[in-house]
Design a protein around this nucleic acid. Structure first.
Length: 735
DNA sequence: GACGCCGGGTTTTTT
DNA sequence: ACCCGGCGTC
């Protein structure tokens, strides 16, 4: 009875994916094939039809939003019997496990979670300890390398063993120091959350056994985006019973740069010989031209698992293509179309999404939207919890929970200014390294030993204040925040600044307090046996992404990167900035594997559209403050001509300067290669040309080196001599 | 120790 | 064009 209602409306493949409950199962779910529906129905089926207790089921996703949506849909199918079901991201799952069991690794349970900025700060500290010049050894690169290792499941010793050259050996050594500093601060970074959980399972079999017993059925969403550690986690948890269902689409694997290994999904059947596999190839989302166009693009990837997507949504518009003169015209074309649709075609703003390759591209569209007073929502970019003032207060809170948090301490010790500056902090760092004590202890030691009386008093005052604040660690989180704002003098300092910028920040802090009030009222009843509300709050804040807060508003245009758009759908999608160097991104242009990932990303972007898909490019674009000229993206050429419709220039909202009124055919438009990075449209840079540089004055080009984004010019300046400049940055004019 | 100027890097995507 | 960190000055 219940089983019937759960299975109702599923197509035969979906049904099979739901009913095949035992053993390993691979569900290859193409874009728009009802993947989430299958996952939620499957969970509901396990509980409602098979009688599996909800607490025996683990569902893992990549975003909190996806987890939340799934929970909602399962509850809709089953009602409250879904309580006890674990649905979470890999990261929050690991936090929960570690909070309970990290003691088995001889670590304290009160650890804090370090975000990217904190990690980078630690990297800088590492370089300092090794007396390396951060200009010579880039802390960002170190951060990147460490993250790579962590994604592969390698701790410092293993990394050192694998290091192939002297450079990498040094990095591995620095990685060791990095881990040491994290340990001293009782902190874990994002990568650690996963890696230490694997470590825990390996070193404490009884802990692993506990979770293996608990979770009899495991489901993993977006399996194509799992990295090595996530693979290991799934493997460890699932091996006991083998009831592992993974769902994914190799064509939508777009996170290799974050360590995702597409082989995890491609090799699933090898890894789990008993595995069954089901393909979901019926697309419920897009019209025929959109699906065919997207498929045609992604088919250019080699070594791809064959999939035959089909849709019954025959007819519909062809894919629209528009080539703008520059990014402003591109924006005005897009917004013009939206205005037309909402005024004349009964569309609402929520039907539209603007998708781009990089966050920085949102700007032109935002300006245009503002011009017409159209509400819009930007996903990504600067996150609320990363804004300086928010982060400052969160660092205070972190210190209430974990006094050893060195990053947090360093950040706020002089915010607001209280006379404890760089010199003092440096001394504290040195003491901390010498005596192997926490930064806070070192600061206290400095106050009673080396510091001048004035400084010593200021340090003591600060430490007393912090000790006093600690009483609020057990209080409701909104109280803790309000008290912190007062006692620290942070609010007072902002108020006395008395400028518009400070006002914005005050508003943000008020928003923080009110969101904390919400958190408090929601969590008031949910008493965790041994975690304070503040601790729970900090965990949540650390793991929340901008996307998680995104809600699709019916009266607001959505703007986001193609990455962020994965899993979402819109009636009309504008996939903008379709130019070589932008999409595919320049940094991926010379590597076949990375190009294929760009192509998959393009596929993801295109398949977000249900009814209308616009792909646009601009001939000219301002980047880094200077002009650049790009040719249309190769991906545009990969869309079959008969599926594409060129938007005529008559559709343009305003009249651009059009030096050539000649109507070119589509092929002409797409095949035309513009001279990249020239300073005057259409003309290439050639030796002998006279140019003007804003700093060096007039000179003549001696040589042209390379092309594309990295093109350099050797110029003999009349007064400044011979210089090599990057065209991209030089802002040259003809002279 | 605080403030202000200069120079360099920046724009790949994020849990 | 913009932001941030570093360095010099007060």
């Amino acid at each position: 009875m219940l089983a019937d209602s759960i299975l109702e409306g599923l197509n035969p493949e979906q049904r099979r994916a739901v009913e095949t409950t035992e053993g390993p199962l691979l569900v290859l779910a193409g874009a728009g094939s009802g993947k989430t529906r299958v996952l939620t129905s499957r969970i509901a089926y396990l509980i409602g039809a098979c009688g599996i207790p909800a607490e025996s089921i683990l569902g893992v996703t990549f975003t909190n939003k996806a987890a939340g949506e799934m929970r909602e849909r399962v509850e809709k199918l089953l009602g409250p019997s879904a309580g006890g079901l674990w649905l979470s991201t890999f990261h929050s799952m690991c936090v929960r496990i570690l909070r309970r069991d990290i003691g088995a690794l001889e670590r304290a349970r009160g650890f804090v979670i370090y975000d990217d900025a904190d990690s980078l700060g630690i990297c800088k500290q590492v370089l300092k300890r090794h007396r390396l010049d951060p200009r010579q050894y880039d802390p960002k690169k170190l951060r990147w390398r460490i993250d790579e290792w962590k994604n592969q499941g390698l701790l410092p010793a293993a990394a050192a063993a694998q290091a192939s050259d002297i450079d990498d050996e040094l990095s591995a050594e620095l990685y060791g120091t990095y881990q040491r500093l994290l340990f001293d601060a009782n902190a874990l970074d994002f990568g650690d959350l996963l890696l230490q959980t694997v470590e825990l399972f390996k070193r404490a079999p009884q802990v692993l056994a506990h979770y293996q017993r608990r979770w009899q059925y495991i489901l993993v969403d977006e399996y194509q985006d799992t990295n090595r550690v996530q693979y290991d986690l799934v493997r460890l948890l699932g091996d006991a019973h083998g009831n592992l269902c993974v769902v994914g689409d190799p064509d939508q694997s777009v996170y290799a740069w974050r360590g995702a290994d597409i082989r995890n999904i491609l090799d699933f059947e090898k890894d789990y010989p008993r595995a069954k596999s089901i393909k979901l190839e019926r697309n419920y989302r897009s019209t025929q031209p959109i699906l065919s166009g997207a498929t045609a693009v992604v088919q250019n990837n080699l070594g791809r698992k064959k999939k035959n997507m089909f849709t019954e949504r025959e007819g519909g518009d062809l894919i629209h293509f528009f080539e703008a003169q520059d990014e402003r015209e591109e924006a005005s074309f897009v917004i013009g179309h939206i205005l037309h649709g909402t005024r004349n075609e009964d569309k609402s703003l929520g039907d539209y999404a603007i998708l781009y390759r990089t966050n920085s591209q949102s700007r032109a569209f935002e300006e245009e939207l503002l011009k017409y007073d159209l509400p819009y929502t930007v996903v990504g970019g600067v996150r609320f919890y990363e804004r300086a003032e928010i982060k400052d207060i969160l660092c205070y809170l972190r210190l209430l929970v974990n006094p050893d948090d060195a990053q947090a301490l360093a950040r706020i010790v002089n915010k607001p200014a209280r006379g404890i500056g760089k010199t003092t902090l440096d001394r504290a760092y040195e003491l901390s390294a010498e005596r192997e004590i926490s930064l806070r202890a070192a600061l206290a030691a400095f106050a009673s030993e080396g510091a001048a009386k004035r400084t010593a008093n200021k340090i003591r005052e600060f430490l007393d204040m912090m000790n006093d604040l600690e009483r609020f660690a057990e209080r409701p989180v909104d109280e803790a925040i309000s008290e912190t704002l007062e006692r620290s003098g942070y609010m007072k300092a902002l108020v006395s600044e008395d400028n518009p910028d400070a006002e914005v920040r005050i508003d943000n802090l008020r928003e923080l307090v009110s969101s904390a009030e919400d958190f408090h009222s929601v969590n008031a009843e949910v008493q965790d046996e041994d975690r304070t509300e503040l601790e729970l709050y900090l965990d949540q804040v650390a793991l929340i992404s901008d996307l998680d807060n995104y809600e699709h508003k019916p009266q607001s245009v959505s703007l986001m990167t193609a990455h962020s758009a994965k899993g979402l759908e819109y009636a009309t999608v504008f996939l903008v900035g379709m130019e070589e160097g932008v999409f595919p991104h320049a940094s991926s242009s010379y590597d076949e594997e990375r190009l294929e990932e760009e192509r998959r990303l393009c596929y993801v972007g295109m398949t977000r559209a249900m009814e209308k898909l616009f792909m646009t490019c601009a001939r000219e674009r301002r980047r880094f403050g200077s002009h650049s000229y790009q040719s249309p993206s190769r991906f545009l050429r990969e869309v079959p001509e008969e599926l594409m419709q060129v938007q005529s220039s008559a559709a343009r909202g305003r009249s651009p300067r059009r030096e050539r009124p000649v109507r070119r055919s589509r092929e002409d438009r797409l095949d035309r290669t513009y001279t990249q990075e020239s300073y005057d449209e259409g003309d290439g840079v050639r030796p002998g040309m006279r140019v003007r540089h804003s700093v060096f004055g007039v000179g003549s080009i001696e040589a042209v080196v390379g092309d594309g984004l990295n093109q350099k010019l050797k110029i003999k300046f009349d007064r400044a001599g011979i210089k090599t400049v990057m065209v991209r940055y030089a802002n040259l004019e003809p002279a």
